[in-house]
């Protein structure tokens, strides 16, 4: 019994690693974002150089989320089209009808659909599509908003993210968890608090040095290679490996392109 569980745990952690690696190889992670937006931003997003993609505030967008009041629902054979209005504009949201949906969310979805009615607010997660120069959002999820405060929350979140992209991240250690550019100011206070609030207490000196290097050095999404960390910190590569292992075990960093290249796991 106990062994079986152990195997299951090993299997699932392996699975996670493999999946993470597969994702890492196929996608540019920086584009894998879920951005809260207003409908006006969606309608005005200029197409980017790459066909089918759009930009908001000069940043490529991928998954979007927004709220809106349902103005119209039109049910067709293959999809349901909702017209949503959030006070900043209107947009059509299409959700494809999956006749043999057997996802675990299937039932919850159906019960939710009953509550999606005209003049009710809904929350959408999906991607912006353009077809014959007409924009719509292909929805992965559309669900009713049951608490109106979510509407206020969303609009404020969309504003905060918009300001983040147009004016840079918040400075001054108030609430920044360390986006590029704020590390230097934060480095001093970050000694005992990893980003996301994890404690660095109990980590080896090697681990702390490696972590500080990863959080303060310029790097791409791929993070830093062990050799780079070793030369930056003037540590012995063997010590860097030891420190890295501690951080990997603590779930504070993860391997990217290969086992010797690490990036901070920021939550």
């Amino acid at each position: 019994m106990e062994r079986k569980e152990e195997q299951a745990v090993v299997a699932s952690s392996l699975e996670i690693q493999v999946r993470a690696q597969v994702l890492e190889e196929v996608y540019d992670r920086s584009k894998d974002t879920l951005r809260p937006v207003t409908i006006k931003q969606i309608n005005e997003a200029p197409p980017s150089a790459q066909e089918g993609d759009f930009k908001i505030d000069d940043t490529e967008i991928s998954q979007l989320t927004f709220v809106g009041q349902i103005r119209n629902i039109s049910t067709q054979a293959t999809n349901v089209t909702y017209k949503l209005d959030d006070g900043t504009g209107t947009i059509e949201v299409k959700q494809w009808v999956d006749a043999d949906a057997t996802t675990p969310f299937g039932e919850a979805d159906n019960s939710g659909k009953k509550k999606l009615a005209e003049n009710k607010y809904a929350r959408v997660y999906g991607k912006l599509k353009s077809f014959n120069n007409k924009r719509h959002v292909g929805a992965t999820i559309i669900r009713p908003v049951t608490d109106y405060n979510e509407v206020s929350y969303h609009l404020l979140e969309a504003t905060a993210v918009h300001l983040h992209y147009t004016r840079g991240p918040l400075n001054g250690g108030q609430k920044s968890t360390g986006t590029n550019g704020t590390y230097d100011a934060q480095a001093g206070t970050n000694m005992n608090m990893a980003s996301g609030g994890q404690s660095m207490a109990g980590l080896s000196a090697n681990a702390k040095k490696v972590f500080m290097c990863l959080s303060t050095s310029q790097q791409s999404n791929e993070g830093l290679h062990v050799q780079v960390i070793a030369s930056e910190t003037r540590m012995d590569p063997a010590d860097v490996y030891k420190g890295g292992e501690d951080l990997l075990a603590a779930g504070m960093i993860y391997t990217t392109v290969d086992d010797s290249t690490w990036a901070l796991l920021e939550i």
């Binding site: 207003t38 900043t88 109106y148 405060n149 206020s152 609009l155 504003t159 918009h162």
Partner: peptide
Amino acid sequence: LGMGIDFAAVDAVVDATHRYKEIFY
């Protein structure tokens, strides 16, 4: 909207709407 609406949040949205109107109207 019933009861339980946070009017401080509603006011903050109105403030943001006009302060950063580029994304609102």
